[in-house]
Amino acid sequence: MSILSGLRKPNSRKKGMKILIYGEPGSGKTVFALSFPKSIVVDSEDGCSWYEGTERTRNVVGILDSQSYDDLENLMDELDDANDEEFSSLVIDSETKVYENIKEALQNVEETRAARKGRDVLDANLSMRSYGKIGQLSGRLQNAKLRLASQGINIISVAQAADEMEDAGNGQRVKVGEKPNMDKRARFDYDVVIRLFTKDNKYYGEIEKDRLEVFERGDIVENPSYQNWVHRLESKDNQGKAVAKDFSKDAEKSQKAYYEEVKGEMSFADRVKEYFATIDADTKKKFVEDMVSATGTKKIKEMNKEQQDKVLALMSK
């Protein structure tokens, strides 16, 4: 029986480990992340500075000091074309700072909009549109991590811990645990998730997820590090040619298909309105002139099918 188009048979191939670690300050997050070999480190908290020049950074081949979403995205694009013999791990320390950078940038946009409209900037909050944009940008970063991991690069994401709260009734909320302070959907993309903590001056990690099947959920590991998973990463089923995957292209494909479907369901007036929102004032003026010349009117809602087709043809140009 032949394999259907687009499918592949499961086989041994090289792949990188995607691991998310989070915890309170002083729980050993940066030290854990620095245990991975041939690492490029995005240091957004200045957490590596006191380790530079010491044995802790012996595995580091380069450091990017930035909290910028754009810098991180550009770096991952560059790593696509880099010589993978020079590095094998990407550390992002921390994801929390990058996530906050996105929110801060969009908050500034909201305040600028408020000022332009004469509203008090102190009352400007993130809109639903901005939250949607945050999700979109976070998704793009996650897809870039998945792409690099499919090429055999280890991805180590570090996040600060945030309290996980539940409604206890009577307007009361109680802490029921901790969660990584980043896009809440991101944790599903990782192979391993660990909550780091300290007890009696010792460092531990609680395993929340492990697709590599080295540990079980709930296991407590003292002084966790890369060495706990090295035998799995160097096993026979993690050898061979990498199968590069770019899920961002799937997102673009779905977006285009969905847009075409939605556009097909939109009324003619709504399609013209949407088009007008994408062009500047001078282009609008020229478009209206061409539209009147082609149809004899600028009354969109009164146009017949022939006139509508002429307008759509102008828009397609």
Rank of each mutant, 00 (worst) to 15 (best):
Y226T: 01
E166Q: 03
K175H: 13
Q172P: 08
S248K: 07
G264F: 05
S127G: 08
K97I: 00
M1L: 13
R173I: 05
F268P: 03
F215M: 10
M1E: 15
R187C: 13
V109T: 05
K245E: 12
K199D: 08
L122A: 13
S44W: 03
M291F: 12
E252D: 15
A149V: 05
F276G: 10
A114S: 11
G264L: 10
Y275R: 12
R56W: 07
D123G: 15
V98A: 01
F87E: 00
Y69L: 07
G169M: 10
G62Y: 09
Y99P: 02
V192Y: 01
D46P: 02
I134V: 15
V60R: 01
S254P: 08
L312W: 12
D290W: 04
T112A: 15
D189S: 15
V311R: 04
D191K: 07
G135M: 05
Y22I: 00
A313M: 15
V292W: 13
N74A: 13
S248W: 11
I156M: 06
V109G: 01
R232G: 07
A162P: 05
E85F: 08
T283Q: 15
V288N: 13
A313P: 12
A244V: 12
M17I: 03
L4A: 12
K209P: 04
A277P: 09
L312V: 14
I19A: 08
S127P: 06
L4N: 11
F215P: 02
K202C: 03
E55I: 04
T278K: 09
A281F: 13
K18D: 09
M76T: 04
L72F: 05
W50L: 09
E24P: 03
D309S: 15
Y226E: 02
G16M: 01
Y131K: 07
V109M: 09
T295K: 03
D46H: 07
F215Q: 09
V98M: 03
E178W: 12
G47D: 00
I220H: 01
D191N: 10
M315Q: 08
E85M: 06
D280Q: 01
S157I: 07
E265N: 09
M315D: 12
L34C: 06
E178H: 09
E85C: 02
M315Y: 11
T57H: 01
D250Q: 13
Q307Y: 06
V288M: 11
F287R: 03
C48K: 00
Y190N: 04
F215E: 02
S150T: 08
R147L: 10
V292A: 14
T96E: 02
S5I: 05
K9M: 13
K9D: 10
S44R: 08
G118K: 08
T297K: 07
I207P: 07
V60G: 01
N59W: 01
W229N: 02
M303W: 02
Y51K: 04
D167H: 08
K175A: 12
R56T: 00
K209S: 06
M182T: 13
R232T: 00
D191V: 00
P224L: 07
E78K: 04
E55G: 06
I63H: 03
